[in-house]
Design a protein around this nucleic acid. Structure first.
Lengths: 346, 346
DNA sequence: TTGTACGCGTTATCAC
DNA sequence: GTGATAACGCGTACAA
């Protein structure tokens, strides 16, 4: 019942541990004959290499650390899902951490991951301050790292981003096209976690650019700060409704907040989209299910996960990434929550 | 830049590695004075124990493996969140795997986890066949294992369950009380992954018991098989609607399916709850947001995660668990999707 | 109360 | 082609 070691296989085959190790790791220099013999023994005895011993020796882990800012947000789980799928194919395990939108938690996670000697790191969302990450990364030979939706000014971190500016522009433009006049926005937090995501900055910019191009004056009173969570959307929407002149449309920087806003609007006795239109961002599965169905900007979630895995694996294979910064596209998905003049759904 | 080892700290303090090790691991026998000195050196030098070396030596990992059957289902993420939170407090990392409702994937995951030498295992949902689990568990000294919502007939696996029978009974009874006559059900899969969850069996039983106690004949034609996913709910509902006499209420074995069913109902031009009422199970966050808001049976998600962590940690501390089987309660949450006679929401 | 020395299972560097 | 053997960093008998 005790575990089978390299040595066990070696003695059984009458070869040395070095040889077995070579076979297991696919080294070139073993004769075809012994290779076959060893391979068979490995199978028969059910030998599995001890990762601890291996990692201790090679000074390099095999698991990939992943820190995600909110496991509760379907956008993130979708990305994680696709990421973990791709990584599994490569035989890599995932240390998953949820930073819960808090830097302290994210940084605790980071410490745990480094203590566990991971092979690579994927940061999804805004879980860790740049300064902290830099400190950790400096400690050793550069750790393959990929950031999703957050740009770090560190050479050896490849960033996987989405052109949210364009998406936000499209969303706002669409609202303008529907005839809405006072278009508000619920943005991300202006400080702390989330504030430095690619998403926050660009979605605000896109919104402003659309207004500008349409010749609509930008009114700061129509922009409320959220926190990318449902409750934050509710709160922000309440502030917006309490304002002097309420908006007749709202673009929220993500779907969770959009849904929160929607509930507040309806609880206030207003109708979506007749009284207030609403557009979100991400296209999480619920967006299509809410009622009215939520117009939103679709993020390439699966693609994000898959690309991150690819980027990471390239780095793991020793290649300094050719393009350490990659930008994907987002696409507007029009549903009922923003189409004023069409019939209400059945 | 090279890593600091136990020995570095030892020489710096002029003590032996054994002493440092003792301090780090909180052994009793070190004098207060040296302890302080060592502790300070540890801090100053930024020493971090090498987990690989430690685990290699102790033959025991520090990470906990978690296999969840569907990361896309908010019920599971909620449980994982709470679990990982509790485990982080204990300084344990989590290897998270998504089995995607497929045994092959789940079992691949299991293999990876065992290769990684985890300290404990948590199975959420139905990811792994009992037979497979038994095989793995037999291989070594018993690995602390907790199963959530799935009962395994293995001595050293503690099972954390929810009394779904009662919840399902309540749900069905509630529908009967609302005056619905032909109450259908969308259940879990009858074979393969999901079929052996606690949830599937008990929710069906509760449904049947309620009918029975109310003196309503059980009609197999009103029960459709689903797969715990949104699409499965849609499909099952389509079959139900295509039946000779359509149900006027449907109890779905989880919320994802309930939501799928709801969309099919509405697309068929029927109204919820006027024409067909619907009740789900789990009380995932979307349930409250859908429109009409979904009546459902609330699972103690946070509690499940937390309890699993506790159970696991007890086992990790060497205690054979007192109650290897623990059953929590579920509670009916009545919302609009099942209340025929009340006004429709604003 | 502290130090010495060995072994955990691998991989890498030699010498054969 | 293959086999000894020395690390990798830590925990822990056991001796002092």
């Amino acid at each position: 019942m005790s575990t089978i070691t390299l040595r066990d296989v070696a003695t059984r085959c009458g070869v040395s541990t070095a040889t077995v190790s070579a076979v297991v790791n696919g080294a070139e220099w073993v004769s075809e004959e012994t290779r076959a013999r060893v391979q068979r023994a490995v199978e028969e005895m059910g030998y599995r290499p001890n990762q601890f011993a291996r990692s201790l020796r090679t000074q390099q882990g095999y698991a990939v650390g992943v820190i995600v800012s909110d496991l509760t947000n379907p956008f993130f789980t979708e990305v994680v899902r696709s990421l973990s799928h791709a990584l599994r194919e490569d035989g890599r395990a995932i240390f998953l951490c949820d930073s819960d939108h808090r830097f302290e938690v994210g940084e605790t996670n980071l410490r745990m991951l480094f203590d566990g000697h991971i092979a690579g790191l994927v940061l999804i969302g805004d879980s860790v301050r740049e300064e902290t990450l830099r400190r950790y990364l400096r400690r050793g030979p550069s750790l393959p790292t990929v950031a999703i939706e957050r740009e770090y000014g560190l050479d050896d971190v490849s960033c996987l981003l989405v052109d949210s500016e364009r998406g936000a522009f499209d969303a706002t433009w669409h609202l303008l096209g529907q005839g809405y006049q006072r278009i508000g926005m619920i943005g991300g937090p202006e400080q702390g976690p989330g504030s430095t995501t690619y998403a926050r900055t660009l979605r605000l910019q896109g919104y402003r650019r659309a207004l500008e191009e349409a010749g609509v004056r930008y009114d700061p009173a129509l922009v409320a700060e959220g926190n990318f969570r449902y409750a934050g959307g509710e709160e922000a929407m309440r502030r917006l409704l309490a304002g002097r002149e309420r908006p007749d449309a709202v673009f929220a920087a993500n779907d969770m907040m959009a849904l929160g806003a929607m509930s507040v609007i309806r609880n206030a006795g207003l109708r979506v989209p007749a009284d207030v239109a609403i557009v979100g961002f991400d296209d999480i599965p619920i967006a299509a299910l809410s009622s009215p169905a939520l117009t939103t900007v679709g993020m390439p979630k699966t693609e994000l996960g898959r690309s991150a895995a690819t980027l990471l694996m390239q780095q793991l294979d020793g290649a300094r990434p050719a393009a350490p910064r990659r930008v994907l596209d987002a696409e507007l998905v029009v549903r009922q929550s923003s189409t004023r003049w069409t019939a209400t759904p059945v």
